[in-house]
Every structure is written in C-alpha cells, then in structure tokens.
C-alpha cells in the first residue's frame, strides 16, 4: 500500500528527468515508423494537390510566433515543399507581427531548395493587419500595397490578375490562437474563401466542428498533423525524405507512453491513499 501511495508522490524533478529521457533517447536512436494519416490531413493535402500548377496561387498565412514554432514550422515547410515541387505558386502573409520573420525564413528556405524565384513563383507580404486581409476580399492591390521587402504589388509578375479572394483557390492559416476563428468568420462567411488550417494540438479539438460543416477544407493538428503531411508529400514523390516532424514521432510516442504510465500510477496511488485514510475531506471537483 505504501508503495502504491508513493507512486502518486514522485518528485516532479524525477518526472522531468524521465520525460527528458523519453524524448531524447528515441531522437538519437532513430527508426522509421509509419503512422496512420488522419482524414483531415488527407483532405487538406488533396485540396492543395488539386490546385493547377503555374496558375492562381495558394495563400499561406503564418499566424504563429516563436513559442509554438516546433508545431507549426514543420507544417509550413511541408506545405511549401509540396507546392513548390508541384509548381503551385504561393503568396505568404501573416497577421501576427511575430510571425513575419518566421514566414520569411520558411519561404526563403523552401524556395532555395526548389530554385524558386520571388515575384514569379512566390511572394511574401510579411505582417499585415487583419483588417487589411479582410479588405483583400474587395481589392487585393489596395490591401497589400507593398510586399515585405517594399516592392509594389504591381511590380510582382505573379500577382498580376489577382483581384481578390476569388483568384485564390485556397487559403491555409497556420495559427496558434483564435485568429483562425476570425478567418472562418470574416473571410469564410463574407468572401466564401476556401480555407484550410494548421493548428497547434492545444487548439485542434476546437476546430473539428468546422471540418464537419465544410467550413474548413482540411486541418493539420499539431506535430502529428505535420508528420502526416510530410508522409503524404514523400508518398506522392514530391520530396525524397521526411522532415523534422516525422522524426519527432518516436519521441512523441515514447513520451505519451510514459505519461499514460504516470497517470495510471498517480490514480492508483490516489485511490490507495483514499482507502488507507477514508475520512479525507478533500475530493476532486
């Protein structure tokens, strides 16, 4: 009994250490795992894949900041690799100031890998107000007068002929906050923009309802979603090797197993303690 009770009172530093081991060991001893690809990921992949190459661009919105980069950056990279390998043009933008540098880095890296040229194969507009992105539905040129590097809209060859959201076949918002809900409400309802999403795992359950109603064409949920997209990109031959998120999946699995064990141990210990001391006034809510 004492042992069981002790299980629920493991020092938190021991827990940190165990978690660190569960994460680090599978990262160093790497082995390839295949995993189930969720339908929401597949839907988003297909929505991107259906965009005709060399025509109207996909819009990728980098609404995330450095704190949640590990979850969303691999999504951005996987989507960009998919687009560039297939010849789909990409317009990058962010409505969160902190995302400006992250978006720039992700786009420049993927473009360099595929030898894509700015202005012709991709554009980056950097940080714009959310209000400007609403106005994009009325007049794209006025909403985004200059790109991130100060070049006027009209001087970017691939932006010629882009009048508003009607010329953008798909917008993917990579978000770590409720800003995605604003995209669904303002751009989705007002301008019938076809929306896809990549969200942190914390937010993932909040947006499944929009998949069911078709308000989102697809969704990537957390690092697992990014890994699933990477797998699809490799399976279809758009990239030779998977990216960072896939390599993290072993560590995720190991840490989840550890946490499940800890939760079971904690509960066993809790109930053991309750039985040992039946008159405990404090109960959980």
């Amino acid at each position: 009994m004492k042992f069981l009770i002790a299980l629920s009172k493991i020092d938190r530093r021991v827990v940190y250490l165990l978690l660190a081991l569960a994460v680090v060991v599978p990262m160093i001893v790497s082995f390839n795992v295949r995993f189930h690809v969720d339908r929401s990921t597949r839907d988003l992949f297909e929505a991107v894949d259906r965009i005709p190459p060399g025509g109207q661009p996909l819009m990728l919105v980098f609404d995330y900041d450095p704190q949640i980069m590990p979850e969303l950056d691999p999504m951005a990279t996987a989507i960009l690799r998919h687009c560039f390998a297939r010849g789909i043009r990409v317009v990058g933008v962010t409505t969160g100031a902190q995302g400006a540098a992250l978006g720039e880095r992700a786009m420049a890296r993927a473009a360099a890998e595929h030898g894509k040229r700015i202005g012709e194969d991709y554009c980056y507009f950097g940080y714009k107000l959310f209000l400007s992105m609403i106005y994009f539905g009325e007049n794209a040129r006025r909403a985004l007068p200059v790109d991130h590097y100060g070049r006027p809209f009209d001087s970017l060859p691939m932006m010629r002929g882009i009048r508003n959201y009607d010329d953008i076949p798909l917008v993917i918002d990579l978000a770590g906050s409720s800003i995605l809900n604003s995209w669904i409400v303002y751009m989705g309802a007002r301008y019938h923009v076809r929306l896809g999403a990549g969200v942190t795992a914390v937010m993932a359950p909040d947006f499944y309802q929009f998949l069911q109603t078709g308000q989102l064409a697809g969704q990537l949920s957390g690092m697992k979603g990014a890994a699933e997209y990477e797998q699809l990109v490799v399976e279809r031959g758009y990239a030779p090797a998977k990216g960072l998120a896939s390599r993290a999946m072993n560590a995720i699995s190991a840490s989840h197993l550890l946490l499940i064990a800890l939760i079971v141990m904690g509960n066993v210990g809790y109930f053991a303690a309750r039985r040992a001391k039946p008159k405990n006034p404090q109960g959980g809510a």
Binding site: V24, I28, P70, D73, T200, G222, L244
Partner: peptide, 26 residues
C-alpha cells in the same frame, strides 16, 4: 491529451534544434 502532445512537441522542437544545429548529435 492534445495539450500534452503540444507541450511535448515544444520540448522536442527545442531539443531537435540543440541536437541538430548546436551539437551535431542527430
């Protein structure tokens, strides 16, 4: 459950940076 995955992902992301770009372990 999703939050647990999110937090572990953040840790993994940082460690990936340390072990790939700083110490070339992976």
């Amino acid at each position: 459950g999703y939050t647990v995955m999110a937090r572990v992902s953040l840790l993994i992301g940082r460690l990936q940076f340390m072990f790939t770009e700083w110490i070339h372990l992976i």
